[in-house]
Nucleic acid binder design. Sequence first.
DNA 1: ACAAAAAATATTGTTTACAAAATTAATTAT
DNA 2: ATAATTAATTTTGTAAACAATATTTTTTGT
Lengths: 213, 213
Amino acid sequence: MKSTSQAAKAYLEIRKQILSNQLVAKTRLKEDTWATNIGVSRMAVREGLNRLLGEQLVSLGAKGGYFVNSLSSADVHTIRELREILEVGAVRLMAVKITKEKIEKLEKICDDFTSMVKKRYFGGACEADVKFHEAIIEFAENNKLAQAYKAGHIPLFHQQLSKTQKQVSDYELTDNEHRQIVKAIKSRKTDLAVEWLVKHFGRGESVMLEIDS
Amino acid sequence: MKSTSQAAKAYLEIRKQILSNQLVAKTRLKEDTWATNIGVSRMAVREGLNRLLGEQLVSLGAKGGYFVNSLSSADVHTIRELREILEVGAVRLMAVKITKEKIEKLEKICDDFTSMVKKRYFGGACEADVKFHEAIIEFAENNKLAQAYKAGHIPLFHQQLSKTQKQVSDYELTDNEHRQIVKAIKSRKTDLAVEWLVKHFGRGESVMLEIDS
DNA sequence: ACAAAAAATATTGTTTACAAAATTAATTAT
DNA sequence: ATAATTAATTTTGTAAACAATATTTTTTGT
């Protein structure tokens, strides 16, 4: 499995989806389905799946097949801590390198998020969420930071699965928090932005924990 | 990969060899070689290798292929702690369930170890070492303990690779420690047996660490 | 209508084959 | 003799095919 191989492609893709909570725990990961979706051979998917098995992100069924594991509370917490450290750092760096363009881009992402939630495109909203946080990292303009962030394969705290009312309100809260962060950065209130970001993560963690149980 | 599958067989075998330090770090794991040795298809080996990749026991070469990783100091230490807890517990349990047969079996294993070291069959000596420690667990006659021990896939602290004089003396020290443990158990000096066991692990850990560096 | 049995379908586990790439061995030139 | 180049071999990455097992659907009987 060279880093550029098909197996790596499959591994990365499935892993991303698990870590961004786009897959419900205990669901079966059908090899052929993923193979055609990702556009690789079934064997490549199988190799990726086995790697994920080693990482304990999936399990084997008693009668064969691979099933996605739910993240442990400890995992969720660890992830929260890491994201908080990196993104708070990014916001502070960004504060000194702030430009009108960056703010506009962030606002645009917020708008995308809003409209997609309104239209019930929760998958799309999820992507916009990822984009928002990646943009913060990007705008800090620090290569090493960006690298660390990517290397972490850091998951989001959203469940785009059951579209209960609760989930919808979660998206709305997320939307508001994102906007508050941008607003604070825009008006040069770095500490306030950090405050909102931390609040954002804290809520994200608790949402994850209560849904899992 | 059902738990009884070929891939599982390959995974277990390769893993065992890595964790018992029968494989030098950085050596390439040739798929076909392992396939024929273990008696499974190359694909099964590949799947096992990918699982080990997820467990970070192997890495990918830049130009493809799988290579064995060396255990980190932290790993070595964790392993030592775990083995110490389980085996010290086992010795204490064994002390109250002691029989002449058990002692004889342990002594026989020690003899095997001695003769194999003498004849420079270091691989065989390694196996005898494993056997010695497994016997201690077995003789404690506690299912759950045995299960925990097996589940841990606990590695030994020996390098059977470069047969420098240093390594040879390591085997001799090991031999002596094993015998001291048996002798203490035989004469009902449980605390002394535990003392020797702890000493044995302590030395094992430091040997591992200085060789790796 | 419900439960059990049978058939049909889908999914996985395994093997084989093949092409691409890397390694090793052999050849050539300096 | 050594270094560079070429050829041979090995090893990997990928795909396709097949058999065995699971799952779903349909049928049948009560």
